[in-house]
């Protein structure tokens, strides 16, 4: 979602929007994710709580899970903005023009033409991002989020059976990837309907 808005903003937005987005994607992609996670988690929760107290609400305790998802989303948004931007640029411009020529409103055009038409170009990039994201969850351990890698380390530490536990963890990541690949393959086949396969075109 962030990616779509980001890409749209970058392509069609005014100069201010474009500059803001450029700052966002540049910074997020320049700074190591671990640093960002720490920064956004501690600074972010602090900021939210300060805002809440300023408006007269109770401080809230933000769970590691929610914060983790938010942070990963924020980071992924920056990368997917670029993936989406590339995908939108890959759509034959005439198809967008035809939609405009038939009186489609910008919202309808996005929903009925731009998104489905760019999907085949975006999926490989987005699939990469998704797989990276599943592994980035390991980084969230630093903010106290109890995920697979952290659990493995603790279990291994207690039982001293490092090899077993880390192999098992590796298997789980692998399984997750395989299942993801399967689902992504399905989605991609659906998105590429209407496009002759590369093999056929040879």
């Amino acid at each position: 979602m962030i990616g779509i808005c980001g890409a749209y903003g970058k392509l069609y937005g005014g100069p201010v929007v474009r500059d803001l987005l450029a700052v966002y994607t540049t910074i997020v992609r320049a700074v190591p994710e671990l640093v960002l996670i720490l920064l956004l988690y501690y600074a972010g929760t602090d900021l939210i709580n300060q805002l809440l107290t300023a408006m007269g609400y109770q401080r809230i305790d933000i769970s590691g899970l929610v914060a983790g998802i938010a942070v990963l989303g924020f980071v992924q948004g920056a990368y997917s903005t670029e993936v989406m931007r590339g995908a939108i640029l890959a759509i034959p411009q005439g198809q967008i023009e035809a939609a405009r020529a038939f009186g489609m409103s910008p919202g309808l055009l996005l929903r009925r033409i731009t998104l489905p038409a760019m999907l085949p170009f975006a999926i490989p990039g987005l699939a990469n991002l998704w797989l990276i994201a599943t592994k980035d969850t390991a980084l969230l351990a630093v903010v106290g989020f109890f995920e697979l890698t952290l659990a493995t380390r603790q279990a291994a530490g207690v039982t001293k059976a490092y090899l077993t536990f880390f192999l098992a963890a590796g298997m789980i990541y692998l399984l997750l990837t395989l299942v993801s690949n399967l689902i992504i393959g399905r989605i991609e086949a659906r998105a590429r309907r209407g496009m002759p396969s590369v093999k056929e075109a040879r």
Binding site: G94, Q95, E97, A99, R100, A101, G103, I113, P116, R193
Partner: peptide
């Protein structure tokens, strides 16, 4: 007035040099 343009466009059937059919639709 964007709405006016969309209304007028939906009265004009345009055919392009490069067809411009939507490739994800039959």
């Amino acid at each position: 007035d964007r709405k006016q343009i969309e209304r007028i466009r939906s009265k004009l059937g345009m055919v392009f040099q490069n067809f411009n059919l939507w490739s994800h639709m039959t």
